[in-house]
Simulated assay, not measured.
Amino acid sequence: MALADREGRMYATERHQHIADTIDRVGRVSVAGLARDFGVTTETIRRDLDALEQLGRLRRVHGGAVPAGQSALAETSLDERLVRDAAQKDTIARAALALIPPTFRGSVLLDSGSTTGRLAELLAAWAPDENGAVLDISTNSIPLAARLHAVANPHLRLRSLGGAVRGITGAAVGPTTIAQLSEIRPDLAFVGANGVSAEFGLSTPDETEAAAKAAMVHAARRVVVLADSSKLDAESLVRFACLDEIDTLITDAAPAPDLAASLSDADVQVVLA
């Protein structure tokens, strides 16, 4: 009996290490998936997750766990996010740029964010395939508007949306921003998200920024969400859209089966960059 207890403890320790390693690598684990992988009951996995949460190794969420530092209220500055997962964001931005070829004639709305910021850098050099054509760009991001204005590209017509500016993201938000968004109908809106979840939809930590994002979703003819794989299956505090309110998700890794099924049911096109 003592040997069996010792082996059980060793096996639990190995499970705990595997779970912690997976959290660090992937960013999320599910109870059902871990139970299947280890060949144990879901109750055993829940006890494992409880033990790891008490040790500060992870944070329990519905159906699984995420990194301990990942909170529904967690938010970092734009400068910090620009350097995090930079390669993935560059890849996603290039895939997004493919939706605005030199033949494109229309208007674009850019949300505030690090991945949309990468797209803005690419758009700074945009040129049409015929003289005199312009690309109309609206944005609520003060940093992105300043960047696009500085390049003085004659093929870009820039509209900066006003409002109260959030210091951490540089985004204009509030009633003024929402009122201006209600007066435009852009052909394409590129929107960022802190979380893309099968159950909760698209979310972000701040309610004022969520309101601005929701207004963008409602304003645009086509909504394209730019989200690197760390945002998939994550949930932030405030939902700004359901999955069936968006048209396309551009990301750098295939969504997990549950999220992929929900995206398919919502008729969302998934583009892997």
Rank of each mutant, 00 (worst) to 15 (best):
A4K: 06
D5L: 07
D5N: 07
D5R: 14
G8N: 11
M10H: 06
T13L: 12
T13S: 10
R15M: 04
R15D: 09
H16F: 06
H16V: 01
H18M: 03
D21M: 01
D21G: 00
D24C: 10
R28L: 05
R28P: 02
R28W: 07
V31M: 04
A32L: 10
R36A: 14
D37R: 11
D37P: 02
T42N: 04
T44H: 07
I45Q: 03
D48Q: 08
L49S: 07
L49H: 05
L55W: 02
R57E: 13
A68M: 07
A68R: 15
Q70D: 15
A72R: 14
T76E: 10
L78Y: 12
L78A: 12
R81D: 15
L82V: 14
V83H: 13
D85L: 06
A86W: 01
Q88W: 01
Q88G: 11
I92Q: 10
A93D: 12
A95T: 10
P102L: 12
P102A: 11
S107A: 14
S107L: 07
L110D: 10
S112W: 05
S112T: 14
S112H: 00
T115N: 06
A120H: 02
L122A: 03
A127K: 02
P128R: 03
P128W: 00
D129T: 02
N131E: 15
G132P: 09
V134M: 12
V134T: 15
I137C: 12
N140H: 12
P143L: 03
A145V: 08
H149N: 13
A150R: 15
A152I: 02
A152K: 14
N153C: 06
H155Y: 11
R157C: 05
L161Y: 00
G167M: 03
G167F: 06
I168C: 02
A172H: 05
V173A: 07
Q180F: 07
A189G: 13
V196A: 09
V196S: 11
A198R: 05
F200Q: 10
P205T: 11
D206I: 03
T208K: 04
E209W: 03
E209C: 02
A215V: 03
M216P: 12
V217M: 08
H218G: 04
R221N: 15
V224C: 13
A227F: 10
D228S: 11
S236A: 15
L237M: 14
L243T: 11
L243F: 06
P257H: 11
A266P: 08
A273N: 01
